[in-house]
Each structure stands twice: as C-alpha cells, then as structure tokens.
C-alpha cells in the first residue's frame, strides 16, 4: 500500500540530507512512499490555543488533500511536521464543530473527515521490523557508538508519542539492526532549545552543549536525530558552543536515515569516525 509523504519546508533546504537519505532507505526497504503533489507549510509550530482555529487550517488542508488522493496514511520525516500534523489531526477530531468550521473555511478543498493517520517514518520502520532492516545491511556499522537523540516532538505530548516518552527505544532498535551500538543517553529526551535558536542562540548553545556532553561522556561517536531543527541546534550551534566552552571537543551529528543509508551501502559519509 502506497503511503503519502509530506516533506515540509526544511527538508527541501537545510535538511536535504534527511530527505535524500530517507527516500533511498525507503526504496531499499521497499517502503512505498510518495510525495504529495502539492503541499503547504505544515502549520508549525503547533498552536496550543483552543480559540484560534485558523492556525489549524494549514495542517488540516494537508490532511484533506491526502485523504482526497485516496491515501489513509501520511508519513513525515521532520519531527516538527509530524507533531504539528498529528496534534492538529487529534484536535479537530476531538470536537466535530472544529472540523466543520475548518471544512467550511477551506471551500476550495474537498472536506476532511478525520480519516488520515499521521505516522512518522520511524513508525513505518518499526512496523517493517528490525529483521527486514538487518537484511538490507551491506556494511554493518559494527563498533559505531550512537547516541540516539529524540528531542521533544516525537515523544510529547503523550497522545502523539511514537514511543515511551521517558525511555524510548525505537531509534536504538533501528541502530542495533544496522549493527551500530546505541549508548546510554539520558539526555536523549531533553529539549535542545528548539526555535529559540532564531532569537536566543546562546541559550540553545548552552542546551546543546549539555546534551552533546552527555552523549560524549557516555562514549558516543555520533549523535543521530530525526529533526531538522534539533539537527541544526546540535550541529550548527557547535561553533557557538566552542566559543562559550573552549574545552568542547565537538561531536558529529547525523540524521538516522543517513546512518542507515551508510549501512545499506548507499553512501560513504562516516569515513574516519
């Protein structure tokens, strides 16, 4: 069954590596995902107001288009898009009048009936099973110590969590299935500072420093993530971290799909690690 794929803005710019590697991984594993022919902003960052329905129009428009094309599942790679779409979906389904109002407002779209399920790509991999992933491995990443970073939006709030919010294992299981060794990493669910990176970069640098140091002290060679925003904060903010904490050694950060593509023999980016 073909699954609709929603990339979101950042995957077409700074997070190209996430999309390219994920599509290659999906192809290798035979997961049929297809980009929606037309899509808008997911509506991020998810609005937490009850009284501001207009903020839900963007995600619901995407879901309406998905349903209208005959898809029942929509997948995303970006954690922020996943969270926005999944929360918006639950929000409008909880109270029928919300959906009615939004449907009336989007008069150019076919009505949305709440019948699309939003699934993160990680969930698709989990459903496929670790064995299938292992079978596709050409270059097992033996000895590679990986800190799996979830951040916030894959696990919280609880009603859209893809795994246990306190002790998740979905990324670890995938890393194990490609031969890598996940390390103990209690900061894996700690917030990186998120969008504050745009206004208070120093705060984000301090947050990222704590997270990366925790990965380093537990022996990680690399950090993997699924979020373009986390990735930016953990990766690009390292130069700010070095300015604030001169002793900081640095730690490579990748999208989990990049590491998978490496194990599948598609790319060679982990040389020297």
């Amino acid at each position: 069954m073909e699954i609709a794929y929603f990339p979101g803005c950042t995957l077409k710019t700074t997070a190209r590596a996430l999309e390219t590697s994920a599509l290659a991984v999906a192809k290798t594993l035979g997961i049929a995902i297809k980009e929606l022919p037309s899509w808008t902003c997911c509506g991020t960052c998810y609005s937490l107001a009850e009284d501001d329905l207009i903020k839900q129009v963007a995600p619901i428009r995407t879901l309406a288009r998905t349903a209208n094309l005959g898809y029942s599942i929509l997948t995303t790679l970006c954690s922020v898009c996943y969270n926005t779409l999944a929360q918006a979906n639950l929000f409008v389904k909880a109270v029928p009048t919300r959906l009615e109002k939004i449907n009336a407002f989007m008069e150019e779209e076919a009505n949305y009936a709440g019948n699309v399920e939003v699934k993160h790509f990680l969930t698709l991999l989990q459903e496929l099973g670790a064995e299938k992933v292992s079978e596709a491995v050409k270059r097992p990443l033996s000895g590679l110590k990986v800190a799996c970073y979830y951040g916030c939006l894959l696990l919280r709030p609880q009603n859209v969590a893809i795994d246990d919010p306190e002790q998740p294992s979905i990324l670890e299981n995938i890393m194990k299935s490609i031969g890598a060794e996940p390390v103990f990493f209690p900061y894996q669910v700690e917030c990186c500072g998120s969008y504050h990176t745009a206004v208070k970069p120093e705060i984000v640098a301090r947050r990222a420093h704590l997270i990366l140091e925790n990965a380093i002290e537990n022996g990680a060679d690399i950090v993997v993530t699924s979020c373009p925003l986390c990735s930016f904060n953990l990766k690009e903010r390292q130069k700010d971290i070095k300015r604030l904490y001169p002793g900081f050694k640095g730690l490579p950060v990748f999208y989990f799909t990049e590491v998978m593509a490496e194990a599948f023999g598609i790319t060679k980016i982990l040389k020297g690690i």
């Binding site: 979101g8 803005c9 950042t10 710019t13 700074t14 997070a15 902003c41 991020t44 960052c45 609005s47 903020k55 970006c78 922020v80 998120s194 969008y195 504050h196 990176t197 745009a198 206004v199 970069p201 373009p228 925003l229 930016f232």
Partner: peptide, 25 residues
C-alpha cells in the same frame, strides 16, 4: 511583537526555526 524578522537575519537559519519563532513571538 517580541521579535522582528530583521533580528533573525544575522545568520542562515532553517525555515522551521524562523516560522516557529514568528508563530510564537
């Protein structure tokens, strides 16, 4: 507004950061 687009022009940022910040602030 708590932030202006000008303030965020200092460096190259991912859209998701820009949009989220504008939404929140």
């Amino acid at each position: 507004d708590q932030v202006s687009p000008k303030e965020m022009e200092k460096e190259f940022l991912p859209q998701v950061a820009l949009i989220s910040a504008l939404r929140k602030f």
